[in-house]
Design a protein around this nucleic acid. Structure first.
Lengths: 199, 199
DNA sequence: TTGCCTAGACGCAACGGCGCGTCTAGTCTG
DNA sequence: CAGACTAGACGCGCCGTTGCGTCTAGGCAA
């Protein structure tokens, strides 16, 4: 659906990068992953779907992993922002619930799971996923927790990183193993690990 | 190391399956995965390493995933048994600590992570992993928790499956993202989720 | 017992298919 | 002209399959 059709694409703009082609590639990769799984995600299939020459892909991306990282970063910045200013117990819980829905319902969630998976098969992917996505996001999440703690909104018993792993881990694990990730689960984990509100 | 050398292999035994060949394939797959990662794990490489013809592999296993499942099941039955009879709070905690070490230090732990990863890329793998490994093991673990609860050894606040996901999830998540999985983490999670001993 | 015969597991080698990443050639636009 | 684009061919490696010859255990008959 979101693949650009050839006629809707603006004419190329000379010797500058074609933004329409870039978006077409990103959307094609996303769509193919969701529709047919990572196994069917080949560079040639992306090129066909995007209506773009294979060489154009290799010109701008070293691998399909980097394409997926681009879509993941753009999409999760848009649709799963980390509450930054004066987070309350409720915004923290809300973020975690959103994260659970992101994992299971959002196409970008599938992209994240696929990249975590691919990281097991290829050390290069593991490094890039850490650098470009996991580490920066974790920094923001840690900051959120620290601010909420300082404001007395939450009172976690464990240090911030362990707390985050303890909540995020089960959500990701259930998503990876094909279980559902209901909001109740998030609330149960948050209740156990974030401590009483306004302790 | 564990690949059978040709001269050490016993002569084939007529029209019966060659057990030495079976073990050579299992060990070759295991070794190649640990040494070079899933990416380098091809059926042809396994055949070369095991000193076995490719057809012999295809005769007995429909895919390399099934080979890995065989090794995972045999190895974790041997090296990570689930405490079954009258589990105490300490045996439950011990099992979870063993599981953490299994994930990071045991070759079979790498096999499990690789299969969880592959399950994201291929629905068939997801089904087989569930059927042959995750479900049976979860059944045993649930039983362990239920018995320990009934005996008053542990007092989890959540239902058994959620409790297991809440402990196992973070361990797996950290292993997947390349973090270490220290015993302290297990103890912290267990302290939070298994409840006070002999409450 | 001796000797042949069959069943089935095995190794060797080659097949067509496909995705990889690279390369060449030609087109289009600022 | 420079630089991004399309189209398509290339060699490589692995896929899963096939044909064929070899080897051995076990059955059967003289």
């Amino acid at each position: 659906m979101s693949a650009a059709s050839p006629q809707s694409r603006r004419p190329r703009s000379g010797n500058r990068r074609d933004e329409a082609a870039r978006l077409a590639v990103l959307h094609a990769a996303d769509d193919l992953l969701v529709e047919h799984g990572f196994g069917a995600l080949t560079v040639e299939a992306i090129a066909r779907r995007a209506g773009v020459a294979k060489q154009t892909i290799y010109r701008w991306w070293p691998s399909k992993v980097e394409i997926l990282l681009d879509t993941l970063i753009e999409d999760s910045a848009k649709r799963l922002p980390v509450p930054a200013l004066e987070p309350t117990a409720e915004t923290v819980r809300g973020y975690l619930r959103d994260f659970a829905r992101f994992l299971t319902d959002d196409p970008a969630g599938k992209v994240l799971l696929a990249l975590v998976a691919q990281a097991q098969h290829d050390p290069g992917t593991a490094d890039r996923l850490q650098e470009r996505y996991l580490r920066p996001r974790r920094d923001q999440e840690r900051d959120m927790l620290t601010r909420a703690s300082a404001a007395g909104e939450i009172t976690p018993a464990l240090d911030p990183d362990t707390t985050l792993d303890a909540v995020v881990g089960p959500l990701v694990y259930r998503a990876l193993t094909g279980s559902d990730v209901p909001p109740d689960l998030v609330d149960a984990l948050a209740g156990n690990l974030l401590g009483p509100r306004r302790g």
